[in-house]
Design a protein around this nucleic acid. Structure first.
Lengths: 307, 307
DNA sequence: GCCTCTGAATTAAATTTATTAATGCAATTG
DNA sequence: CAATTGCATTAATAAATTTAATTCAGAGGC
């Protein structure tokens, strides 16, 4: 046996009016409706809520007063839930979950998310980093609202908004003989040792670049971590290829790096926004989406160096 | 357009089960009921709460997660309201409002209410003092649950439980010639000045005592305050009659008083508990009622001296 | 003290709302 | 490419809510 919010609201109206009839007029329902609601509440609470005065309305008992205070609070909370939902749908407000492809995350998310939260203090942005497969799965599961990633292996139910193309470049040690050239051909590096960034999608992508020029790289090391990749290159263990361009041109141990464009036409990786097609976005997610479009362009990418 | 607690609970069940079908089995309702409830909530909130996965249930969106957290809280609060009401009806718990006839209040209520609240820490006792007419009106209005007063001018819808009879006695100054007598006749005081406690009921009562003996008192002063009455008597302005017997036999200015029984048969005032007949008492009120019966007897009255 | 009035409770009919069983439908699985 | 899964839809039914009309008990006026 339970009660409804409607019954509570009828009870509260009667309690405030001190009369069922007056309450009925005020809230535009019939007198027996309120009478029923009160009787029902008295039954399930096993309490006398009102003292009925013949021909002069009714007044709350002490128990009724206590229940009424709680009822008002509950009704208030219910109406706040409604307005919370309303705000979620039409105001830039609430929590949003953003996913970012791991190698991109340390470059773009700090500035991007911080800037967004500065502009929209009502929004709480949660960022998670993951590989492409997991990002897509998270989008479909709803555990992230939006992903910043490349347009690789996207399913049909994911919609992708391209933002910028990231051309591949050669990652060389600062003191490498070719490090000051305007551009470099893959062929020129063919005899040197190659450090492969061995992540689910990037490995295949980088190898495809070599194939285009019929170059067989000498894979000297594989790593899943871009900091290891940069550290190895900076310390002269070999060269590598990359698309993301951290502003800081030193590896974690302080050794210098150089970014040299590739001479020739190579496929870029397109950085953009992936969202689930069928989803209806909250205002906050939508705002983050447009914020990304505004902030990320070929002129400027948060946290990223120009070539 | 509003939602119901039932709809919220269906939504929460579905959110927790990750599937309408599983939720339906768990809470024993049909699948379309839950489906409807969710659709309704999505409509009125203007939010997408779930992502539907074909043939593999559904998962909450970020918005759905936020709404679900709030919904759970609201349902929790609703169930707490229910249990609060339950406790009010069957446990010694909550607030109670006690009324007390003004002259009695300073004598009996401090010890009585303090003792009760010690024994039942879950109960919050509020005491108010008033004259008989107001006490009865408060009982009928429900603003007090129970009144400690005399059995005077009670209406038919008030039920009165007598506790003790308070015999009238002569209030004399400590150094009054008759102050050490075992008992005194009203006749013996007839020539002295009389101080009348001039309260709605007590004035008529005291005058009726004189009528019984065909004595015409010399009314020297009238007061509505028992402290003034005691002060006047203690300082030798005259004698008075009273029923309540404060333990402290000094007036507020420190002068001594003496209580001397009346010789003869005079009507007593009966101190007891007045409650509204038709009311269903909460457990807390009922306990206070029995506590009064236990504590107030002819052997002992809290705060009151023996004659 | 009689009559009228007020306002809650009750009753019965109408309406709305919730529930169910059956079915449809889209995507997944083997 | 059937078979299955699981949500949405539909239509029939059951339940709850609402209302209009009425009853009833006490209050208040004369």
């Amino acid at each position: 046996m339970k009660f409804t919010l409607k019954q509570l609201s009828y009870f509260v109206a009667a309690g405030e009016a001190g009369s069922i009839l007056k309450a009925a007029e005020k809230i535009h329902v019939s007198q027996p409706s309120i009478s029923n609601a009160i009787t029902h509440l008295e039954d399930i609470f096993e309490l006398q809520l009102f003292i009925r005065h013949h021909a002069q309305g009714m007044s709350l008992t002490t128990a009724g007063n206590q229940i009424m205070a709680q009822s008002k609070r509950l009704l208030q909370d219910a109406s706040e839930l409604k307005s919370f939902a309303g705000k979620l749908s039409d105001q830039i407000f609430g929590s949003i979950n953003i996913g970012c492809f791991t190698p991109l995350a340390p470059i773009v998310t700090p500035e991007l998310c911080h800037g967004f939260m500065q502009s929209f203090p009502g929004v709480d942005v949660n960022v998670s980093e993951d590989n492409q497969a997991e990002l897509l799965s998270s989008l479909k599961k709803g555990s992230i609202d939006l992903a910043l990633t490349y347009d690789l292996q996207l399913d049909s139910d994911i919609s992708f908004t391209p933002l910028v193309e990231l051309k591949p470049y050669a990652l060389l040690a600062e003191d490498h003989p070719l490090s000051n050239k305007k551009a470099v051909k893959l062929m020129e590096l063919a005899e040197e040792k190659f450090i492969l960034l061995d992540l689910p999608l990037s490995d295949a992508y980088f190898m495809s670049l070599f194939s285009l020029d019929n170059v067989k790289p000498i894979i000297h090391a594989r790593t899943k971590h871009i900091d290891v990749q940069r550290g190895l290159v900076a310390n002269g263990y070999g060269y590598s290829l990359a698309n993301v361009r951290p502003l800081n041109k030193r590896s974690l141990d302080g050794s210098g790096l150089s970014y040299v464009p590739l001479l020739g036409e190579y496929p870029s990786l397109t950085l953009g926004i992936a969202v689930l097609e069928k989803i209806r976005k909250t205002m906050a997610v939508d705002s983050f989406n447009t914020y990304c479009i505004e902030q990320i362009s070929s002129n400027h990418i948060p946290g990223m160096a120009t070539l």
